[in-house]
C-alpha cells in the first residue's frame, strides 16, 4: 500500500538516514532538482551507498534520477539499477519514446548485472504540457511503468501560469493523468502540496486528489506525511460498509438472487468493485476484518 511518497534530497545524509522514520509508505531519494550540478556525483554515490547499507525499514525506496536531456541519467542508472530499488522515477517524461529509451538502457543493465528481466519498475514524472497530453502512451509504453506521478510546479511553468494553492491551473492535468493511468491499468500519484506550514491546506489538497481517483500523494515535507496517509486510508466506516456489501452480495448469490439491496440501496457491479478495492487497501494497512 503506497499512500505517501516523501522526497529526500540525495545530497543530505542527515535527511536520508532518518528517511524511513517519517511514516511515509515510500521515500524518493532525489538526485535531480534537490541536488546542485556540482554535487551530482556526490549524491549519486551517497544514495547508492545508503540504499545498499541502510536497509530502509518498512518503506519502499524510489530514486528520482536526472532527466534524459542531462549528461547524468546514464551514470545515475548505472549506480542505482543494480541495487534494484522499488521504483525509478524519471523526471520530465514527455513521450512513450522517453520510456522506451530508459527501458532499453535499464534492460542492458539488468542483463549485465545478472538481474531478472523487467525487474526494475518505473514511475514516470509527468510535468510538461506535452507529457500530460501523452500520458496514456507513456503509461502503456512498457510493462516497467507501474505508476504515473504528476509534477505541478514544472507543469505550471510550462503552461505559462502561476502555481496556486487552489490548483485550478493543474486541474485538467490531474484529471487527465488519473484517466490515462487507470486506462493503462497503473497507479497514479498527485503532486506535492508545497506550503510546508499549512496543515489544513494539505488535508484539503489531499482530499481533493483522492476524490479524483489518485492512489496517493507525494510530499516534500515530513510534516505532511501523516495527513496524506490519513486521507488516503479507508475510514473505519468505509471498511465496515465494504464488508457489508461483500457479505450481502455473497448471501444473495448463495440464495440465487440477482438483485441485491443494502440499507435500501441497490448494490451494483461498481459498488462491489469499490468495496473490493476498499477491503484490499484496508487489509494492506492491517485494518481488515480481524483488526476490528
Amino acid at each position: 500500500m503506497r499512500r505517501s511518497m516523501l522526497f529526500l534530497p540525495g545530497s543530505t545524509p542527515n535527511k536520508i538516514i532518518n528517511g524511513d522514520s517519517m511514516g511515509s509508505d515510500a521515500i524518493i531519494l532525489d538526485l535531480e532538482d534537490a541536488v546542485s550540478p556540482d554535487e551530482k556525483d556526490a549524491a549519486r554515490i551517497l544514495v547508492r551507498n545508503a540504499i545498499r547499507d541502510m536497509g530502509f525499514d518498512g518503506v519502499e525506496v524510489i530514486v528520482r534520477v536526472n532527466a534524459l536531456d542531462t549528461p547524468y541519467w546514464k551514470q545515475d542508472l548505472d549506480a542505482i539499477v543494480p541495487l534494484c530499488p522499488d521504483l525509478i522515477m524519471p523526471p520530465k517524461t514527455t513521450s512513450a519514446q522517453d520510456v522506451l529509451t530508459l527501458d532499453a538502457y535499464i534492460g542492458e543493465l539488468e542483463k549485465a548485472n545478472g538481474m531478472e528481466e523487467n525487474s526494475v519498475k518505473l514511475i514516470p514524472l509527468i510535468e510538461t504540457a506535452l507529457g500530460v497530453e501523452n500520458a496514456y502512451q507513456i503509461a502503456s509504453a512498457s510493462q516497467r511503468v507501474s505508476a504515473l506521478f504528476l509534477g505541478g510546479e514544472d507543469l505550471s511553468a510550462d503552461l505559462h501560469c502561476r502555481r496556486t494553492k487552489e490548483g485550478n491551473e493543474i486541474d485538467y492535468a490531474r484529471k487527465r493523468l488519473v484517466c490515462a493511468a487507470r486506462a493503462a491499468g497503473v497507479e497514479v500519484y498527485d503532486t506535492p502540496f508545497t506550503d510546508v506550514n499549512d496543515d489544513e491546506g494539505i488535508v484539503c489538497d489531499a482530499k481533493y486528489a483522492k476524490s479524483l481517483g489518485f492512489t496517493g500523494k507525494a510530499s516534500i515535507s515530513p510534516r505532511h506525511v501523516s495527513a496524506i496517509n490519513e486521507v488516503f486510508s479507508p475510514t473505519r466506516a468505509e471498511i465496515d460498509h465494504a464488508y457489508e456489501v461483500i457479505e450481502a452480495i455473497t448471501a444473495a448469490k448463495a440464495q440465487g438472487r440477482g438483485v441485491v439491496a443494502l440499507h435500501g440501496k441497490m448494490i451494483d457491479a461498481p459498488v462491489v468493485a469499490r468495496a473490493e478495492q476498499t477491503i484490499a487497501a484496508a487489509e494492506a494497512l492491517g485494518l481488515g476484518r480481524e483488526a476490528r
Binding site: P13, I17, D41, A42, I45, L46, R48, N49, A50, R52, D53, M54
Partner: peptide
C-alpha cells in the same frame, strides 16, 4: 558523526574528483 556508508561515499567522491 557520519555513518559508515556516508564516510565511504564521501571518500569515494573525493577520490573520483
Amino acid at each position: 558523526g557520519a555513518l559508515d556508508c556516508v564516510i565511504r561515499a564521501r571518500v569515494e567522491t573525493a577520490v573520483l574528483r
